[in-house]
């Protein structure tokens, strides 16, 4: 396992005195999908911002492939897939234009695309199954298609670390499955993918590792060890919908615990195995 992303003793305090992150430690290897779970205001987006170098650490260090963040950014090692709401869908650019933006860092200072750039864009669009839509204006796509365009941009950028911010909000089940499949392909190509998500139920399906934060690190490790009732309760407090279902008519008096933030619920069976419905 080669470490790709390393976060050591990271603390972030904003100038208004708000302590957004406190003493976060973890390191993630290549070829991994990792979930980043936490309540709103838990510091998830601050953690993303520190990894991208947008907010300075008040203490600690983030390094990517052994490089400081600025250098990793310069070498096009980080790609970011924004939340759907962060994008101006009326902007007059085509699907092709957006994916080509992922190549800017590889182009000369005049940003004139070469044959290799056109090739990379075509390959990326092919992989996400959006080749037929290359000349559509981005506003004319469905929620899932929009997401796939931005995943294609990350592909075209050929980054090693891909950060996805809530990739499954506003996306139908079919598109979600397609995106997950795509992320698995990316992982198999050696990428580290970090996904900030509310969709707890889907996490065990495709995330190898999970991180739970609430300003500090609540838990980090293989998903099955991390997504436990205890950890989720300490991360979310009362903010999760939490149902305990008694087995009806069964011999067992054990109960099934269901956690849901706002999407697919996470179901914890008494045996300790995670199974999602």
């Amino acid at each position: 396992m080669t470490e790709l992303l390393k976060v050591e003793n990271l603390s972030v305090r904003y100038s208004n005195g708000h302590q957004a992150l406190e003493d976060i430690n973890f390191s993630l290897p290549k070829a991994t999908i990792c979930a980043l779970v936490g309540a709103n205001g838990s510091g998830k987006s601050t953690l993303f911002k520190s990894i991208m170098g947008f907010v300075p650490a008040s203490q600690g260090l983030v390094s990517i492939a052994g490089l400081p963040v600025e250098e990793a950014v310069r070498q096009q090692r980080i790609a970011y897939v924004p939340q759907t709401e962060q994008v101006d869908w009326d902007f007059p650019v085509s699907v092709n234009d957006v994916v080509m933006m992922g190549r800017y860092g590889h182009m000369g200072w005049l940003r004139r695309p070469k044959a290799a750039d056109h090739e990379a864009v075509a390959v990326a669009l092919e992989k996400v199954g959006m080749s037929a839509f290359a000349h559509r204006q981005i506003g004319q796509l469905s929620g899932g298609q929009k997401k796939r365009v931005f995943v294609a941009r990350a592909l075209a950028q050929a980054a090693e670390l891909v950060l996805l911010d809530e990739p499954f909000t506003g996306v139908d089940v079919t598109s979600e499955a397609q995106i997950v499949e795509l992320l698995r392909t990316l992982r198999d190509e050696g990428c580290l993918i970090v996904i900030s998500t509310h969709n707890l139920g889907a996490v065990p399906d495709y995330c190898d590792l999970s991180i739970i934060i609430r300003q500090h690190l609540v838990a980090f490790g293989p998903t099955s060890d991390v997504l436990t009732a205890h950890n989720l309760q300490s991360a979310f407090g009362g903010k999760l919908r939490h149902h305990v279902l008694q087995h009806l008519g069964g011999e067992s008096s054990e109960s099934v615990t269901v956690f849901t933030d706002d999407e697919r619920p996470l179901v914890l069976y008494p045996t300790g195995q995670d199974q999602s419905p």
Binding site: M52, G53, F54, E70, V73, R74, Q76, I78, A79, Y80, P82, Q86, V87, D88, F91, V93, V98, M101, G102, Y104, G105, W109, L110, R111, R153, Q157
Partner: peptide, 23 residues
């Protein structure tokens, strides 16, 4: 505009991406 036009386009469209690409 010929030199920086595309950078400006990217920045106006997606400032976060512009930053993660080191613009």
């Amino acid at each position: 505009m010929l030199v920086f036009g595309r950078d400006w386009q990217l920045q106006l469209f997606d400032p976060i991406q512009a930053r993660t690409m080191g613009l």
